[in-house]
């Protein structure tokens, strides 16, 4: 029985995941980003907000590998610190999305009836309002634009996908004999939902959450680009909104943060694709 632990769902998935080079690339990119974000204070050559007087708009050179921006700040240091903001918003948003989505989907799928009816109606309505409109509407009403407001807004608009996936998983799983057994054994609803159904419903939720991570990062970047971000933190979207106005004489100010967003989102999308394949989750 020594092989028993190796044949769990996760072990099988990892073996399948390893086979695909693109999936591994996605994993490598995301791990690299997380490490960069955590170690930002130690690896950034300068303070990202330090203005080097008289060295504005320096092109890439040994002193400033990615050049400097309009206030003489080091672009490389800002790109490194920007990873922190992006990943923080990404992870926090996904936690919020999953918390709302799984709760709504689980209740809806498990209890069914009018509760399901009402919750799915609400889900459909939120899906109908274009994300970006709802996002800028929420971002615009807060007087103080903080990262938490952005996370709240992203969470408020993005939960329906996971809610639907969770619901359909619950609809399938709750009909299985072992759930009947659990019910007959007199287990409470929360215990059945969280201990017996949810773990088996996880694979598609994890895949969706990975894609949500990519889109949350893209949303934060878009909001910051539109001038609706948190002005107090270093953000790729914000760097880009300044950078694109000076593209012609200082291309490096906007190009590198843009590239950073692209690589980050690509990394999470590759990881999501890999997980989908490895966990054998059907698309849609």
């Amino acid at each position: 029985m020594a092989a028993a632990p190796a044949s769990t769902l996760w072990a099988v998935a990892w073996r399948r995941f390893k086979r695909n080079k693109l999936s591994l690339a996605g994993l490598a990119i995301t791990v690299w980003l997380v490490v960069t974000a955590i170690l930002a204070p130690y690896i950034a050559p300068y303070d990202p907000n330090k203005m080097h007087w008289g060295k504005e708009y320096m092109p890439p050179c040994p002193e400033f590998p990615l050049g400097t921006d309009e206030m003489g700040r080091d672009v490389l240091s800002r790109v490194i610190w920007g990873a922190r903001t992006s990943l923080y918003v990404g992870f926090a948003s996904v936690l919020l999305i999953a918390a709302i989505g799984v709760t709504v989907g689980a209740i809806s799928g498990y209890f069914g009836g009018w509760i399901d009816e009402v919750l799915m109606r609400i889900t459909d309505i939120v899906l109908t309002i274009p994300t970006i409109m709802l996002l800028i509407l929420i971002a615009s009403i807060f007087q103080v634009r903080s990262l938490n407001v952005i996370i709240l807004a992203i969470g408020a608009v993005s939960w329906p996908t996971i809610a639907r996936i969770t619901r359909s998983q619950f609809l399938l799983i709750k009909e299985l004999p072992y759930i009947d057994a659990a019910r007959v054994a007199g287990l409470s609803h929360p215990r059945i939902i969280f201990r017996h159904i949810l773990p088996n419903a996880l694979p598609p939720i994890i895949v969706a959450a990975t894609f949500d991570m990519a889109s949350a990062i893209l949303m934060e970047a878009s909001l910051s680009f539109l001038g609706l971000g948190d002005p107090r933190v270093v953000s790729w979207g914000q760097m880009l909104s300044v950078g694109h106005t000076v593209m012609l004489h200082a291309w490096w100010v906007g190009t590198f943060p843009g590239l950073a967003i692209f690589v980050t989102v690509l990394g999470f999308n590759l990881l999501g694709d890999g997980l989908r394949e490895a966990l054998d989750v059907a698309m849609r």
Partner: peptide, 14 residues
Amino acid sequence: LMGVSMPVFWLGIM
């Protein structure tokens, strides 16, 4: 895959 990861504003700027 590159297209879905591309921020639309960055593509526009480029």
